[in-house]
Design a protein around this nucleic acid. Sequence first.
DNA 1: CACAATTCAATTGCGCACAACTGAATGGCG
DNA 2: CGCCATTCAGTTGTGCGCAATTGAATTGTG
Lengths: 186, 186
Amino acid sequence: MATPPGTAPLDAVPLAAAHPGPTDADRLHGEQPLRDEDLLRLDQQICFSLNAASRAFGGVYRVLLKDLGLTYPQYLVMLVLWEHGELPVKRIGEHLRLDSGTLSPLLKRLEAAGLVRRERSPEDERSVTVSLTDAGRELRDRAGQVPRTLLTATGLPVEDLAALRVLLDRVTGALDSAVLADGAED
Amino acid sequence: MATPPGTAPLDAVPLAAAHPGPTDADRLHGEQPLRDEDLLRLDQQICFSLNAASRAFGGVYRVLLKDLGLTYPQYLVMLVLWEHGELPVKRIGEHLRLDSGTLSPLLKRLEAAGLVRRERSPEDERSVTVSLTDAGRELRDRAGQVPRTLLTATGLPVEDLAALRVLLDRVTGALDSAVLADGAED
DNA sequence: CACAATTCAATTGCGCACAACTGAATGGCG
DNA sequence: CGCCATTCAGTTGTGCGCAATTGAATTGTG
């Protein structure tokens, strides 16, 4: 399916993310107030692009993780566990921005695959502690080449990826507080 | 700033996306080859951030679109139709990077909501043409403030959003060709 | 201590994403 | 013309993402 990023009118952009240049933004950023129509167009661009990028990542990970028997979200959970060793479901959810509705079945599948253990915390019987099995720890070595392969596949130099991450995190923070502010007014 | 080397999390980044400066990337981009451990960390950062951003967008859109009775993917389809008026399923999929497995049930729901019509093309009976109903066209006016609200909620100036889009599109293009190249070798 | 509010994981229900497959329509080629 | 590969939409099955709810454990308050 592979839609080349060249179907919409506003596409002939000089690939210059690290220094200014004549881009779509300039046309949209003149002195006059931004017209709704321009905003609609930029909105389209952003949400299309973000969606497509997110799923493109998922596609590459899916290929890379197939050998490991992991899905992309399962891999994210394993990354968190590899880093922290053992965490309650709640903490995993905070790291990944996921709730128990998503994590409970996912963790059950990881447990069925023999990669993690789930047990009620003795101190707090409400909480479930997720820990790695030996197989789960060993999987980390087999996953060793995944990050390098993926970062290479992005085609971007490391500094651009870092810049991308900064932009994404800022947007996420702003959107989260916006939605909280909206939800809080009653 | 001078992030001391070692295991410190790559978090305290000067928010400088539009011009170069000393960032995490520099530490990762020195003369020595990048260590697998650094790559693992950056890989985590990127995929966490992209995932979180994608879902944060979805969350805000969900709130904004609730009144219109649309989900976020349905809104994307409507955006395409508002722009092009009438398209076969295949073309919609190319615009949005989606296949019939996703679009068929989604379009069926839009049809049930009275927003679109689906009819077999007379020239090619395999193809299904999707067109807007009057209600579908009228919805565009009610959606008028969505883009402005959303772009404001991102907290980023328009030129940063445009830069973000460029980075995302480059990544998507590279990832797609990487996955195609990988899938083609056999 | 009793009792209400809160916290946590799990479940249910709906919609999307994607692989794999089905089946009909089309186009190419001998 | 007959046959086969291709193209298209749709279906099925699995897994995520999230809202809403449930039920048990814990905490706070009188």
